[in-house]
Computed example of a mutant assay.
Amino acid sequence: MLKIKIEKTAHPKPKPTGPLGFGSVFTDHMFLMDYTADKGWHDPRVVPYAPIVLDPAALVFHYAQECFEGMKAYRTAAGRVQLFRPDKNGERLRSTHERLCIPPIPVDDFVQAVKALVAVDKDWVPAEEGTSLYIRPFTIATEAQLGVKASSAYQFCIIASPSGSYYPTGIDPVRIYVEDEYVRAAPGGTGAVKCGGNYAASLLSGEKAHRLGYGQVLWLDGVERRYVEEVGSMNCFFKIGGVIRTAPTAGTVLPGITRMSCIELLEGWGYPVSVAPLPIEDVMRADEDGTLEEVFGTGTAAVISPVGELKYRDRAAVINGGRIGPVTQRLYDTLTGIQYGRLPAPQGWITEVE
């Protein structure tokens, strides 16, 4: 167990008023922990939120040795604050560290660190419908050395930001552009881990999609440009002929926590779920023959995001008349019900912050 030192700010910031956005206002404190080769991970602490000072030669700037997680704290109607499956975020961060040659952080230590920061900044967890405290753990290489190698020093940090409802006016299905020119990830690369380079590589396609009037990009595989993979910041599911299909997380697709939870719920409800490669042509053919019933994305930010339209080359598939489907709605209602304490949670899904 970590021995976390806590230094509270002498100058607390005013809480935001009015509608909350996303990721622009931050709480009073942050969690920090350092790594050096001689000490390992050490000096865990919650301190006042402040800039991080780094040497210009820090390896994170030059060779992108860094990674992050995304998760939320929710306030229930009874005023309790709880986390949704934080151990799974800790497991994924550990996997990411191993892929990027960063010394791993034990999952129990990760969860303890998140709980410590949220406990100190508990008053920042908003109570309005659909709001939450977004939590961003991240790790950066801090050794000052211009040379392509794994760093010998790191800093692990957690910051938090009160966030508004993803759907302030109701769930609005998103329009998605299928990218077949650029690729997000290739076998053997870093597609299955949460590092910033994956997102930097996606920006150009995102801008192209927005110019064409689409809100997100659906990526195809990096070898044949044939199989659907994931959507920007979400995993993606397709209900075709009664079967719910999603891409395997076999090295090029991020293993989403919400994705995992949806599969477990769907299987528990008796729906057939296929985790296997799915050609985009099969999706478009299903639209043509009327068997493409629902498409939805899953992720921390939106939880469940219905897809109303898919654009692939010169073809556009309008799903379920551009409206949210019944399975999509059931998943959204169930997951948000669990997260906000309105519904009972499966064993181990909820961690309360005291």
Results as ranks from 00 to 15, higher is better:
Y154W: 13
I135G: 04
L146K: 13
P106T: 07
A127S: 15
L117G: 08
S165E: 07
L100C: 03
G130V: 03
P168F: 08
G164A: 00
W124T: 05
E128W: 00
Y154H: 15
C101P: 01
G170W: 05
A150R: 13
K115W: 00
V118Y: 03
A113P: 03
S165I: 01
L133V: 08
T142G: 11
Y134H: 11
C101V: 12
D121T: 09
V148W: 04
P162D: 12
F110T: 05
D123G: 14
A150D: 11
K122C: 07
S163P: 06
A160C: 14
S161N: 09
K122G: 00
I135Y: 08
V118A: 03
T142S: 13
E143D: 10
A113N: 04
S151E: 11
P104F: 03
G147F: 11
A116M: 06
Y154Q: 07
G164T: 00
P137Q: 12
K115E: 14
L100Y: 02
I159Y: 13
G164W: 00
C101T: 12
K149L: 11
V107E: 03
I102M: 15
V148L: 14
I158A: 12
I135D: 06
F156I: 10
G170C: 10
L117P: 06
P162Q: 10
E143K: 09
A153I: 10
S165T: 06
G130W: 00
D109S: 05
V125R: 01
G147W: 09
F156N: 08
S152V: 08
T142A: 10
W124H: 05
A119S: 15
L133W: 02
F138C: 09
F110A: 06
G170E: 12
F138G: 05
A160I: 07
T131R: 02
S161L: 10
P162K: 08
G130T: 04
Q155A: 12
T139L: 12
P104T: 14
I102Q: 04
I158Y: 13
C157Q: 12
V118W: 02
A160L: 11
V148E: 04
Y167V: 03
V148A: 13
S132W: 01
L117K: 07
G147M: 13
Y166N: 07
R136E: 10
R136A: 10
I140C: 08
L117D: 08
Y167G: 04
D123Y: 06
I102F: 08
T139C: 15
S151M: 11
V111T: 07
S165W: 01
V114A: 06
S163Y: 03
Q112F: 01
A113F: 05
A141P: 06
W124I: 04
I105N: 00
C101F: 14
G170K: 05
Q155D: 08
G130R: 01
F156H: 14
V120R: 10
K115D: 02
K122N: 10
I105V: 15
F156A: 13
G170N: 09
Q145A: 13
Q112V: 00
G170I: 05
T131A: 01
P168E: 05
S152Y: 02
D109L: 00
A144H: 09
S152R: 15
F156W: 15
P126M: 02
S132Y: 01
